[in-house]
């Protein structure tokens, strides 16, 4: 077993050895279900999961930083980072191990929403393909937010600061292509830049995957987004691990 697997295994187990995982799962599942049914699922009279997926970005923007905030802040505050990084493991392996462990945890949380598609299938005849692409899009979106959260967790030793900073940045990537944001930005930025900012937004890419179109453009966006933040995480951690 190499360093990556060792860190991955330990980190994933760590979620379940503290109450964190259970608190997170209960709140996430409740909120996801509540938002879906309270925001027009029955009014639409259509058996699909659009109301479920369309509320996820907002929920993730708060819940994912909460999962990510302990990744490195906790490690640096307690000093255990000194134990971790004096084992024969590179910083890259450690960062990737932790990132993928947290991502798997979020995948488990998404998997536990399985009663929602079952309910929808019971009520009508939904397009299964759309549900599957919706889940794929959600998983990538969770990965993107997680990469942001993991980066900010390495920036500070304080978990609360890490949570707030990453929630704000996640929020910015959601609202970047909203008409109000666009209108505001176009007041003082050139049109090309405003367009670029709207293309950076999660929402557009997530929506198009959720609509059932998995295009190279959207996948590349998420993969590059995640890789970029994880790479920044590796650099900042290598720089600040001891301070």
């Amino acid at each position: 077993m190499n360093g990556f697997m060792a860190v991955f295994k330990r980190e994933f187990k760590a979620y379940f050895s503290t109450p964190l995982a259970y608190v997170f799962l209960v709140i996430f599942l409740f909120a996801a279900g509540y938002m879906m049914f309270s925001r027009g699922f029955y009014l639409m009279r259509q058996a699909d999961m659009r109301t479920f997926f369309s509320n996820l970005p907002l929920l993730f923007a708060i819940m994912v930083p909460a999962t990510a905030m302990r990744l490195w802040a906790e490690e640096r505050r307690s000093g255990s980072i000194e134990l971790l990084l004096t084992l024969p493991i590179t910083v890259t392996q450690a960062v990737l191990g932790k990132f993928f462990a947290a991502w798997l945890f979020l995948a488990v949380a998404l998997l536990l929403t399985i009663p929602v598609p079952i309910t929808v299938c019971y009520l009508g005849d939904p397009d299964i393909g759309l549900i599957i692409t919706g889940y794929i899009g959600s998983l990538f979106m969770a990965g993107g937010f997680l990469a942001i959260g993991s980066f900010f967790s390495a920036v500070t030793k304080n978990q609360v600061i890490s949570l707030v900073l990453s929630a704000v940045v996640c929020g910015m990537f959601i609202i970047a292509d909203m008409p109000t944001t666009q209108a505001y930005l176009s007041a003082f930025l050139p049109a090309g830049l405003v367009k670029a900012i709207s293309q950076l937004s999660f929402q557009g890419h997530f929506d198009s995957i959720q609509r059932g179109v998995i295009s190279f453009k959207d996948l590349a966006y998420f993969v590059l987004f995640i890789a970029g933040w994880v790479w920044a995480n590796i650099i900042i951690l290598d720089e600040r691990k001891a301070s």
């Binding site: 760590a14 050895s17 503290t18 307690s78 000093g79 255990s80 980072i81 000194e82 134990l83 004096t86």
Partner: peptide
């Protein structure tokens, strides 16, 4: 290597 204050993962 044993670091000062022997840091460990507390929940393990």
């Amino acid at each position: 290597y044993l670091a000062e204050n022997a840091p460990c993962y507390n929940e393990m």
